[in-house]
């Protein structure tokens, strides 16, 4: 097996709080990403999935900082790398796409100008050649008449097309890893499905590895080969998508699966996990999920559970669900 494209060990990101101290938004996250692999990063709002993405990109703004851990991208250690080194890798080796394409593209610049700017960040290219490359990138993500569309402004595209433009910009330099932060959440369901299918084809075709961040387990389940479930900054369960969905070991994963509309019988009320996500500034000393967990016992409240590994799967729970349950 070839070495992983991205290897993350014990990544920890903290945000300094006003009254001193720090909130851990990302706490000891470890995973690795093989070439061409699609990993789904799932969790509720505030579980730290986006912060994990930004930490990998080296884009955490003060008062936040990556407090510890190691991120190796194509063999190079990103932790502690200087700003210029990180910049030179962003967009070329690791890229990111965002949720809302209306907000990511600058409304005042043509699509061509924004693409050429992204191109110029890593490669000096004469104008004509640059236009050729940009048009090719647009065509690859399914934008018709790409060459003519370079002169168009973002508001002249539909939402789905705008997101394709953003994807084309992220893919310009053929990065080895793309972090996709809920890129289909703001789109129509049909467009969402199209983009998922196309991204999967691109990953298979070019060997691009994807980290697909989503709060929607249903989106990720049919798409990713592996799933990471995050809760309060920690990865509470990870493993092959199919196995995790069929037989979750962590009660939180079970809760997420049960609360999918497809899991409820028609006419029955949707099931939900009781309680709300904890505030990162005031996490309980033990397992962060314990206050909402039906299986929690006294030991759960003493110290955060360590990771249990079993083959390709791992979870952080003292009383995991049975493998066959």
């Amino acid at each position: 097996m070839s070495p992983p494209v991205l290897d993350v060990v014990d990544l920890t990101t903290e945000f300094a709080l006003r009254g001193g101290g720090a909130a851990r938004a990302v706490d000891g996250v470890s995973f690795s990403l093989a070439r061409g692999e699609i990993v789904g990063l799932v969790g509720e709002s505030g579980s730290g999935k986006s912060v994990t993405g930004f930490s990998l990109m080296g884009l955490i703004d003060p008062p936040g900082r990556v407090a510890g851990g190691s991120v190796r991208l194509n063999g190079a250690e990103l932790a502690g790398m200087d700003a210029e080194g990180l910049r030179a890798r962003r967009g070329r080796e690791i890229a990111m796409i965002f949720q809302d394409p209306v907000a990511t593209l600058n409304p005042l610049l043509t699509v061509g100008a924004q693409m050429r700017m992204a191109l110029a960040a890593h490669a000096r290219t004469p104008r004509r050649a640059a236009d050729d490359r940009c048009a090719a990138a647009l065509a690859r993500v399914g934008i018709p008449a790409a060459r003519d569309r370079l002169a168009a402004y973002p508001h002249e595209f539909s939402g789905g097309m705008r997101q394709r433009v953003a994807i084309a910009i992220a893919l310009l330099h053929a990065p080895s890893v793309v972090i996709a932060d809920e890129p289909t959440t703001a789109l129509d369901v049909s467009v969402q499905a199209q983009i998922l299918v196309e991204m999967r084809a691109l990953a298979a075709e070019t060997g691009l590895s994807l980290i697909w961040i989503s709060h929607d387990l249903a989106v990720v389940s049919g798409f990713a080969s592996r799933i990471l479930v995050m809760y309060a900054g920690r990865v509470v369960e990870q493993g092959p998508a199919e196995a995790v969905l069929r037989a979750p070991r962590h009660p939180y994963t079970r809760g997420l699966i049960d609360s999918l509309p497809a899991a409820a019988k028609p006419g029955e009320p949707l099931r939900q996990i009781p309680g709300g996500a904890p505030s990162l500034g005031a996490l309980p000393p033990g397992c962060a999920f314990a206050p909402r967990c039906p299986r929690a016992a006294g030991a759960c409240r003493a110290a955060p559970p360590v990771e249990t590994r079993e083959g390709a799967r791992a979870w952080r729970c003292l009383f995991p669900l049975e493998a066959g349950a």
Binding site: L59, R90, M96, F98, T104, L105, N106, A118, I169, L172
Partner: peptide, 10 residues
């Protein structure tokens, strides 16, 4: 996000 996206593109 415009600025974040630009930064993410290097």
């Amino acid at each position: 996000d415009t600025i974040r996206f630009a930064r993410a593109a290097g």
